[in-house]
Design a protein around this nucleic acid. Structure first.
Lengths: 336, 336
DNA sequence: CGCGTTTACGTCGTTCGTAACGATA
DNA sequence: TATCGTTACGAACGACGTAAACGCG
């Protein structure tokens, strides 16, 4: 058995069982790929693919298992290479991050700015998507880091490092009635107004939806959007009261919007950064984690590097002691 | 990078950094091994070993990491081969089990007898040792199954399937005073007599030791042995009262010994069977597990096969619902 | 007849073993 | 001088690419 045979095998699978396409992707000749597959099947003594005439028809059950193992092998081989370049070219490499809009727009810019200045030679890829899309990217193995909030069960194959908590803010146009309340805003107050918030906040068993439901309230959600910028636009138009992540309040917004802290109204959210269990964490990746979640000590980070399952991580970090991230008002203090 | 290079690398490490010895073990020439190591180091661009003159002196930190990854790679490659033979030679292979004396002597014989008749072509290896020795064998990767009791923390790299509970029995010569008690034997009763029991039962924080300590008792342990046969011998000699695992009571013992159930006196022990997280479980291995722990359903077993961490297993099995295994008296009913 | 795979074959690079050399204790 | 690793070289093997044949729609 050769590494090349496993590589060819995976290429065939990843190119829709088309050997010709696989060969092109591998910059080699098609008969070569064909032959190596045949050799591999002969050595293992089993068919990895079913044949439709001469073409490959499908994957046999045995093939499925072999392919899964082969992926692990190639993954680890890549890890070895990665390890090696970490020692040799500490400052070079790539870092691909998949995350949601809120993180990409309001949290990561600072982090990435700092990271880029420290590692100018590392090429960064930022992929934005919903939690589900991020999960897909993760399983397609294209991603070094996933950053998201909640939905831990979507990412059971990653190790998740809790990074910070955040609350919601209520956004209203200047001089809105809600800003003139003498007391704290309650859910009942909110339910009086048309609401504008995130799409996913009202799909599934979202915490926002639940918070209202628990009080027996049925709020009037007039508009849902995928990101806070759109929500703000509609709040400015007077379409309704916005509920957004605290981080989503820009200082610029203060010109025409007012933000009301919704601390305590809704359950607190936890944003985490996750990576594949068996990935090699290069120096610059560890530094990225620390930039993103500065409360993590260097020792914790070192332990994280060798953690093998989520339990190890959970022991390491006290969920309740995470920093709280807010928007414009006190970004600086939160970062300190 | 070639698989052979990784294989050679591991052989060098496993032969005390002696290239000549590694070459012999690999049935190849020494210059070949030397050269492949050099090629690997060149490709990775780093030294895997420090050199003392021309000889290898030690492993560099980078080397340590590469070696660890290389082991995973070779493991998975073996798994692929194993997978293949499972489809082709369902009935052939090897099964090596590491276990303690109690299991090897009193529990496994029946299981293995049945297994051998079902899979006569599978060659069995049974290794006996203390928990620590078993753990060593496991990390040396020589073992398919480990079977032991308690000490789960020694085996954090294995997936452990709880198999059965057992209590202790008190062994005394025929007509011993303790057999004439009208009531149940208590710890206080036991503490009146010289005791003979397992070595490890009184080392560390063993449950036996703790049970006495909790009552403020300081029993007089006159003799400790590694196995129940030795303990029985000394009980027969009248040296003291024996405390052994329930399974350790042979029907033959009834000729000159009497057994008193110690149910409730000491905490119940749980025996498990464990295997490496990423091992391929071949058909006959699954059958072995089921012979050893017949309460496991075929579906549970199938899930077990794909479990990735101990949590998955714990969810699958209700620890409290395990069968209770006893000695001679009702072996048959326990097995049913 | 086009598409994709297999077979056939010549070329080139790699591995392997033997033998000679070098360094270390 | 014995042990262990490196260098050198010829033989054998295996991988690759081109060209041609085959089978299926």
């Amino acid at each position: 058995m050769k590494l090349q045979q496993l590589k060819y095998l995976l290429a065939i699978v990843d190119n829709g069982l088309n050997i010709t396409a696989a060969a092109e992707r591998l910059y080699t000749s098609q008969p070569g790929v064909s032959k190596q597959l045949k050799l591999l099947e002969e050595e293992l003594g089993l068919q990895l693919f079913t044949r439709k005439g001469k073409s490959l028809g499908g994957i046999t059950p045995a093939g499925q298992q072999v392919i899964a193992r082969a992926r692990v092998v190639m993954q680890e081989v890549d890890n070895i290479r990665s390890l090696a370049s970490d020692y040799f070219h500490e400052e070079e490499g790539t870092l691909s991050i998949a995350t949601t809009h809120t993180q990409a727009r309001y949290v990561l810019p600072e982090v990435i700015k700092e990271f880029r200045s420290r590692y100018p030679k590392v090429s960064l890829e930022l992929h934005q998507g919903t939690s589900e899309q991020i999960a897909d990217m993760v399983s397609a193995n294209e991603i070094d880091f996933a950053i998201a909030t909640g939905s831990r069960d979507l990412f059971s194959d990653l190790l998740l490092v809790p990074s910070y908590h955040w609350d919601r803010k209520i956004l209203v146009p200047k001089n809105h009635e809600l800003t003139r309340l003498e007391r704290k805003v309650t859910l009942d107050d909110l339910a009086e107004y048309p609401l504008v918030t995130y799409v996913f906040s009202f799909g599934g068993q979202s915490s926002l939806k639940l918070a209202f439901a628990e009080k027996g309230l049925d709020p009037d959600v007039v508009f849902t959007a995928r990101d806070a910028d759109v929500i703000k636009t509609y709040v400015r138009m007077g379409l309704g009261v916005g509920i957004v992540a605290s981080m989503a309040e820009d200082c610029d917004d203060r010109k025409d919007l007012e933000a009301i802290e919704a601390e305590g109204l809704f359950p607190r959210s936890t944003t985490w950064i996750g990576f594949r269990r068996d990935a090699v964490l290069r120096r610059y990746m560890l530094d990225f984690i620390q930039l993103f979640a500065p409360h993590i000590s260097t020792e914790q980070l070192e332990c994280t590097r060798h953690a093998r399952n989520q339990g190890d991580i959970d022991e390491l970090f006290d969920e309740t002691a995470l920093p709280l991230r807010t928007g414009c008002s006190d970004d600086m203090t939160a970062a300190a």
